Simulated assay, not measured.
Amino acid sequence: MRHEGRQEGRPGEGGLAGAAWPEVPPDPAVLVPVGSTEQHGPHLPLSTDTVIARAVAERAAALLPGPPLVAPAIAVGASGEHAGFPGTVSIGHEALSAVLVETVRSLALWAGRIVFVNGHGGNVPTLDAAVGRMRVEGHDAAWVGCTVPGGDAHAGFTETSVMLHLAPDLVRPFGGVAGDARPLPELMPELVARGVRAVSPSGVLGDPAGASAAAGREILEAMVAAAARRIGGGRADGRGRLLAPGAPAPEARP
């Protein structure tokens, strides 16, 4: 018996990477998952953000007209805050910005709308800057995150549950895993100044206790539904962040 989400985690199957060029329709919408290769505690794989971003992109695409093509994931992002842990690979904001900008410029030669589906919070400032720049250049580019209200910050209940649903064979035992469960806004100043390891020796920000595949299915479905609504609605602010349908547009930044 195969795990439902496991096949979706394989790049190229059913997406852009698996197509031959004559099979690419004219002016398609393209969703580009953006993740990271970074520590996710002692129990989750370094690919966690990428696995989740790819799954959200693929499942959201299936709910949208067209459907949009799903590009191979950008699997290394800006993860400097996790540099204290072996295995983390980060290219930093400047290099990630170049990757995002050139991805849009390349896709725009044959694609229509381009939406990055982001699974890593550390990529957000770069997405804001790069996608905003692309919109100024006239490209139909935007981005959306893989988030749910009330989710914990990193490698806690939220991500552990989603990974138990998507890729249970990659989840290690987590019964004794402890992390810093304070709200992210409270942690942020120390995280920025000293990195994750100074705040949480385990690398976990949150608490994976009680995580389950059943909860992960519900969380993933909420992520997908929210992403599909925003992508389908098509409204974005000046940074390219897609807005929820009916949400007021924020005032333009100076």
Rank of each mutant, 00 (worst) to 15 (best):
P208D: 13
V199I: 12
G151I: 01
V177C: 14
A247Q: 10
E4H: 13
G122S: 02
A130C: 07
E137F: 11
P45N: 14
G132F: 09
A167S: 14
L44T: 04
G234A: 12
G156D: 10
G84V: 02
G206H: 02
H93W: 00
V224F: 12
T50N: 06
A178L: 15
G151Y: 08
R217W: 07
P45R: 12
P168A: 12
G138Y: 13
V51C: 11
L166I: 03
G145V: 02
L31A: 14
H3A: 12
R6M: 14
D152T: 00
P168N: 12
G195R: 09
V76A: 11
L96T: 06
M134H: 03
M163T: 08
I114S: 12
Q39I: 04
L64H: 00
G77L: 00
V204H: 15
G210F: 04
L109C: 15
R6F: 14
S200N: 08
A178K: 14
G233W: 12
H139A: 13
S90P: 03
A244C: 04
T50K: 09
V224R: 10
T126N: 02
L170F: 03
D237R: 07
S47Q: 07
T37L: 11
G156H: 13
T88S: 10
G232A: 05
G138A: 10
L166G: 07
A61N: 13
V104L: 11
A209Q: 13
S202R: 08
A62E: 09
V199A: 06
P42I: 08
H165Q: 14
H3P: 07
S106N: 10
E102L: 02
A20V: 12
P183F: 00
A19M: 15
V89Q: 05
S47F: 09
G246R: 11
L220C: 09
P245V: 04
V76F: 02
I52M: 12
L63F: 01
S97Q: 09
A211N: 05
H43N: 08
P28V: 07
L46P: 03
A141Q: 01
A155V: 04
G138V: 03
A57I: 07
P185E: 04
L107S: 08
A167G: 04
E102R: 08
V192C: 04
E137H: 03
E159A: 06
S79T: 04
G12C: 03
A141F: 08
L44K: 03
V117L: 11
H82P: 09
G41T: 09
I219C: 01
R253H: 07
S161H: 10
I74K: 03
A19R: 15
H120R: 06
M1G: 13
A20C: 14
P189G: 02
R235L: 14
